[in-house]
Design a protein around this nucleic acid. Structure first.
Lengths: 163, 163
DNA sequence: TTCATAATGTTATATTATAACGTAACCAAA
DNA sequence: TTTGGTTACGTTATAATATAACATTATGAA
């Protein structure tokens, strides 16, 4: 239990709206500084994810878009393209074991993230710890790492109490 | 780089047939000792996966079943059920980031496995290392771990040479 | 043999994701 | 300010992955 940065926002109280605004501003700045376009669609999808702090499926996001914008009938590729962009920029993560997406609580930190996923309340906590050992190990095998996925499923403290 | 057990079978030469026979025998024994039935369907699916040492999609397995058994027309649920059984017994793993399945090279070792996935040759190496720190961390948050997924994507040494 | 259970088989359908192609917005250079 | 290249968006259709629901068959204990 050495250097540990815990960001288990999902499992704590916090000022949701404020957090959301802060992360949106960070996203704006990130894209602006790289001369990338955080278009209204992309921003809209990011806002939806930020409004949740829980993983959402692509089709959940789609439904939300269509709920808000009742005139249009938005189709899957639009959502998937926005998600791809946000993933590439490290503004969101994909939870592989859930086919779902969640906003990143620490954009710009290289986002080699780890998740604790409660199978009861479905909340997800994002950790940011030393995975150096693991990566060093890959390295010692001559394996050039692009991307790592660490997803730990179980039952969170709250659900254990409630259960 | 402390205690390391490397089983990157995919990235080494080995006697494939012998390895396959050994793992099948282990599976038989495992199920027998727990009074579980490694039925012919389950065994058939395991054999297909053992014959590959690479991840296969459920529909790849399905196609293989239908290729072998030309009389029948096997449907998806049959494959998924066999896969579920084999997963529960820790005889195979699911690679979440690929929607694919691969035989476990160390059945019975609790199988908290980690994978190095080459995005070039698509080979997968299974590591078995200390993920104790990570699990200890989850524990320190009061999180009761069921299952952990660690999947690292990149380029293997061989493909770096070839590339 | 009979019954309960577990496993398999079958049909239909749900869920997740992408291919392919056309249109609109953006922006730099003429 | 047009032109043309590029990037993003929109649309239709369909591919790939997975499961629900229910019928049938096999297994094994009473």
């Amino acid at each position: 239990m050495k250097s540990k940065t815990l960001s288990n926002i999902a499992f704590r109280r916090h000022d949701h709206r404020r957090c959301q605004q802060f992360l949106l501003a960070e996203a704006d700045q990130h894209c602006h500084s790289l001369n990338l376009r955080l278009t209204s669609r992309r921003r809209q999808v990011l806002e939806i994810l930020l409004g949740s702090h829980q993983p959402m499926g692509a089709y959940d996001i789609l439904a939300e878009l269509n709920r808000v914008d009742r005139a249009e009938r938005i189709a899957p590729p639009i959502v998937y393209r926005a998600l791809d962009f946000l993933l590439q920029q490290g503004l969101i993560h994909r939870i592989e074991s859930r086919n779902a997406f969640i906003s990143c609580v620490q954009p710009g930190h290289q986002c080699a993230a780890q998740f604790l996923i409660c199978r009861d309340c479905e909340q997800v906590a994002e950790l940011e710890t030393h995975e150096q050992e693991l990566l060093a190990e890959a390295d010692s095998l001559g394996f050039a790492v692009d991307h790592s996925i660490i997803e730990i499923t179980g039952v969170c403290a709250q659900c254990q109490k409630d259960g």
